[in-house]
């Protein structure tokens, strides 16, 4: 709502309250039907204002046509890639959770996790415009994919609080203790 609209609303409310107060002061009776009728009046005002907004919108300029990319069958849009990436990342989270709850054996967990991680890397590459990744990201990802999670987990338990951290973590996610010494 614009500043003008807000002022308008405020002054109308004030006027209505004043008029209502005056009427009560002069001894008018208020019953349900008066209330409903005044409500109807307010709604009518809103309607008229809204109709005016339609006219204003129609009279407005037509700057910039809607960005509507034509969809060719078979093409994979960027948003679809981004969505799949989000899905894969969430799936990894869920996989870890299922594993923690004992629904998946560690062997299954490892194989499925590796497949997911590869897919995630693939998607990230696809999402990156020029198809290359930052060199540090590449090494980090490769380390993440190639090292067995079971081994990685044991070597990245935090020395201070015992929480297991990701293979490439430099600080503990629970207590903030530095982890870098642990694997250098």
């Amino acid at each position: 709502m614009s500043a003008r609209g807000r002022w308008l609303l405020l002054s109308v409310t004030l006027a209505v309250t004043l008029a209502g107060g005056l009427m009560v002061g002069m001894g008018a009776e208020f019953d349900a039907s008066v209330l409903v009728l005044s409500l109807a009046g307010v709604v009518l005002l809103a309607t008229l204002r809204q109709m005016f907004a339609v006219v204003v919108a129609l009279a407005g300029g037509d700057e910039g046509a809607l960005a509507q990319a034509a969809v060719a069958p078979g093409s994979v849009s960027r948003s679809a890639l981004a969505q799949e990436q989000r899905r894969v990342l969430r799936a990894i989270k869920e996989l870890d959770f299922d594993h923690a709850m004992g629904k998946l054996s560690t062997a299954d967990h490892t194989t499925i996790l590796q497949r997911y991680k590869l897919r995630a890397v693939e998607l990230m590459r696809g999402l990156d415009e020029d198809g290359t990744l930052h060199p540090q990201t590449v090494t980090a990802l490769e380390r993440g994919v190639n090292s067995s999670p079971a081994r990685a987990a044991s070597s990245h338990d935090c020395g201070a609080c015992g929480v297991s951290n990701d293979a490439d973590a430099r600080f503990c996610k629970a207590c903030g203790e530095g982890l870098v010494e642990a694997h250098t």
């Binding site: 809204q50 339609v54 919108a57 129609l58 407005g60 046509a65």
Partner: peptide, 18 residues
């Protein structure tokens, strides 16, 4: 692909509600 008309349609939807 006219933004103007779509805008008016959005306002029209509100008008129908009121």
């Amino acid at each position: 692909r006219s933004e103007r008309m779509v805008d008016a349609a959005v306002q029209g939807t509100y008008t129908v509600a009121t």
